[in-house]
C-alpha cells in the first residue's frame, strides 16, 4: 500500500480488547493524528457492548484473548454487524492460528503493541471494497479514482492537471456517449473566451498524458469528426 494517511477521512473508532499499554505504542494523541480513536475495553464482552453502541467502529483483538475463544468472538462480530476485525498478533502466536482467523473473516493483522502508523495501515487494509467502490469509475482498462485524484490506464498512472482530470471524469461519466464539443466547452473553466480552443487543447493534453503513461496503447479518446469526442474503452 502506498497510500498516505492524508487520504483518510474523519476519524475511525478502534475498539481494542485489553490493556492500552499492551496494545498501543505511543500516546493516544498520536493515534488521533492518524485519524484513529482508540477505545480500550478490558474484556471481549465489554468490547462487544461497545460495538453494539457504535457499529461503525473497527475491532482490534489480541490473539491471546482469554475470556472467550477468539474465533467465536470474530464470528459474533461478523454476524452482529459486519464489523471489521483486526487481529493483534502477540508474540508466541502460531501461524496456524492466524490463518484460522483469516478463515473466520478477519480483515487484517497487526503486531502488538502497534505504532499509530502500522495500525492506520491495518485499518486501511480492513476497509471493504464496498466502502470505496462508489468513488472509483472503472471502464475497461481505465480507472479513475475521484477521491485520490488518480487515473490509471493499463495499470499505468496517468498524470493529469486538475482541469483535465475534470474533463476526463465528465467523459467517463458520459461513456459511451459521444460528447459534442459544445458540451465539452462548458467544462473548461469560467473564462468565456476561446472555450473551443481550450476544450481542444485539454483533449490534446489528455491524449499526451495517456501516451506518456502507456505508449504501447492507442489513447482511449476518439475524435468523432465534426461532432465531438468519445472514450473508446
Amino acid at each position: 500500500m502506498n497510500l498516505t494517511h492524508s487520504t483518510m477521512r474523519g476519524s475511525v473508532k478502534i475498539v481494542a480488547v485489553g490493556n492500552l499499554d499492551l496494545i498501543a505504542r505511543g500516546r493516544p494523541a498520536e493515534f488521533r493524528h492518524r485519524g484513529l480513536t482508540l477505545a480500550t475495553r478490558p474484556t471481549a464482552m465489554a468490547a462487544l457492548l461497545e460495538v453494539g453502541r457504535d457499529p461503525d467502529s473497527i475491532v482490534l483483538v489480541p490473539t491471546n484473548l482469554n475470556d472467550m475463544p477468539l474465533t467465536e468472538f470474530v464470528d459474533i462480530l461478523h454476524s452482529l454487524a459486519h464489523v471489521p476485525v483486526i487481529a493483534g498478533i502477540v508474540p508466541g502466536c502460531s501461524a496456524q492460528a492466524v490463518s484460522e482467523l483469516f478463515d473466520h473473516g478477519i480483515s487484517s493483522t497487526v503486531a502488538l503493541p502497534t505504532s499509530p502508523g502500522r495500525l492506520a495501515d491495518a485499518v486501511r487494509a480492513s476497509r471493504t471494497p464496498e466502502q470505496t467502490e462508489e468513488l472509483v469509475i472503472e471502464v475497461g482498462n481505465l480507472t479513475l479514482d475521484d477521491a485520490r485524484h488518480r487515473v490509471t490506464w493499463f495499470e499505468k498512472e496517468v498524470t493529469l492537471a486538475p482541469k483535465n482530470f475534470e474533463i476526463l471524469r465528465f467523459m467517463l461519466v458520459a461513456h459511451p456517449r459521444v460528447i459534442p464539443l459544445q458540451e465539452l466547452m462548458k467544462h473548461v473553466g469560467d473564462n468565456p473566451q476561446n472555450r473551443a480552443v481550450r476544450a481542444r487543447v485539454a483533449i490534446g493534453r489528455l491524449r499526451a498524458a495517456f501516451s506518456d503513461a502507456e505508449p504501447r496503447h492507442d489513447t482511449p479518446i476518439e475524435t468523432v469528426h465534426r461532432i465531438g469526442y468519445r472514450l473508446r474503452l
Binding site: 480552443v197 481542444r200 483533449i203 490534446g204 491524449r207 475524435t223 465534426r226
Partner: peptide, 19 residues
C-alpha cells in the same frame, strides 16, 4: 473561431485536439 469550433477537415480536428 470556425477552424477551432467547426473544422471541416478531420486532420484539422485531429491536430487541434492533439492527435
Amino acid at each position: 473561431t470556425q477552424i477551432f469550433e467547426h473544422p471541416t477537415d478531420q486532420r484539422t480536428e485531429d491536430y487541434i485536439s492533439g492527435r
